[in-house]
Simulated scan of single mutants.
Amino acid sequence: MTAALVLALAPMVARADDAVRFSVMSYNVAGLPWPVKTKRGKALERIGDELAKMRAAGTEPDVILIQEGFRKEIGELIDRSGYPYVARGPKKGQRDASLWPKGEKPDYRRVAYRRRGEGLGKWGSSGLWVLSNYPIEDVKSHAYHYCAGLDCLANKGVMLVSLNVPGLPAPVEIANTHLNSKGASRVPRSRNRMAHHLQADELKMFMREDRTPGAPLIVGGDFNVMHAPDRFDYVMADYPFEVVSRWCHALPGACDTQISYDGDAPWLDTQDLIGFLDGARVAVTPVKVEATFDGASEPVLSDHDGYRVTFELRPKG
């Protein structure tokens, strides 16, 4: 099993001498296999090269959360990037028991659209990876029990890593996940929405059972919530966490926000979210939000931009 998601409304804290700046980028690299996507191998290798350029300049993210890292060229991306520590999410063959209590199994038919990929087995892994500048002390993962449509061909799930960050009195936990898509699943909206909700339930149950109590937490990934407030609200319900974009929007001036957006709900303008939760011994505060691989400093190499958040991690007491 592994971890998932937890984001929390953290109090604003002033910059302190003992604070640690810590940046996390979530990036769906569109590393889908042929014939689903073509010409992605070279793009993945170029992403690795661009990350190496950032590293040479001292501007690389401390941690990268990758989604859709299915192709073999993901190994080239990792090697070229230069990140010393790497962890992988659920592999193709990983199967985990249902997290629902006995007698509370959801009323959901697991195979309803066989011609849309359901019931045909897993053709790929979860596509989840974590690259880190800091030692990865522990890795947990969980493959979701429910899915809908073409998403069922991947072993989607969640992974949780524990990092030893110098200057902090406790390890930092980082979760990476990818939830069921909408139209791309090629099944009716009611079907893919229910699968998304069930995966969100698994994410929450996993976090309650497997996360280290009191650990500072950062969660990111492709949540597939763009223009879908019903999905976003379900993910956020009954759990004490907050997403960075909503927190920064509610506190004008608290974050150096370098991403433009329209309307009053920037968290619904994207599939990609990053969230945070204070730890018992470490305060977690977002201080900067920016896009990468968006055609500005780096080329566009995926159908997603990289989404990067810099946090201030400060020991309490």
Rank of each mutant, 00 (worst) to 15 (best):
K105Y: 03
R115I: 13
C152R: 06
S185R: 03
T292Y: 00
G157A: 00
K53A: 14
A14R: 14
G167K: 08
K288M: 11
K39C: 09
P61Q: 00
Q67F: 00
M25F: 09
G93M: 09
P266Q: 03
G279E: 06
K91R: 11
A184Q: 13
G48D: 11
G69V: 02
V284F: 06
L251Q: 13
V63D: 01
L198I: 01
P286D: 05
R208T: 11
F276R: 07
H304S: 08
K316W: 06
W247T: 11
S302T: 06
M159G: 02
M12L: 13
S26P: 09
P90S: 02
A87T: 02
E118V: 08
E45M: 11
A254V: 03
S185N: 10
L273V: 05
P33F: 02
A154N: 07
R114N: 10
V243D: 15
G214Y: 03
Y134I: 06
R281K: 14
A3P: 12
A200Y: 06
W100A: 01
F311P: 08
L65F: 07
L99Q: 02
A195V: 03
A170L: 01
N180S: 12
D151F: 03
V225K: 01
E104F: 11
Q94W: 08
H197R: 15
E242C: 10
T270G: 00
V20I: 15
E202M: 00
A265R: 15
K316R: 15
V161E: 05
A170C: 01
G41R: 09
V243C: 09
L313A: 08
R71N: 14
P33Q: 03
D151S: 02
V13F: 00
V243F: 10
S190Y: 13
S297P: 00
V165D: 00
L9M: 10
E50V: 11
V24T: 07
S245A: 14
L153S: 06
G75Q: 14
K316D: 03
L251P: 01
Y146G: 03
P216I: 08
V36F: 15
R109I: 10
A57F: 13
P106G: 05
A4K: 03
D278T: 12
A195F: 06
I74E: 05
I78N: 09
D201V: 05
V172G: 05
A3T: 13
A254I: 08
G157D: 06
D49M: 11
P216G: 07
P169L: 05
D262T: 09
D278V: 05
F223N: 04
F22E: 02
M25Q: 13
E73P: 01
K91T: 13
A170Y: 05
G220M: 01
K37P: 04
E290H: 02
R191E: 07
S190I: 08
L99C: 03
L65R: 06
R116L: 14
Y27N: 03
G82T: 11
D262H: 10
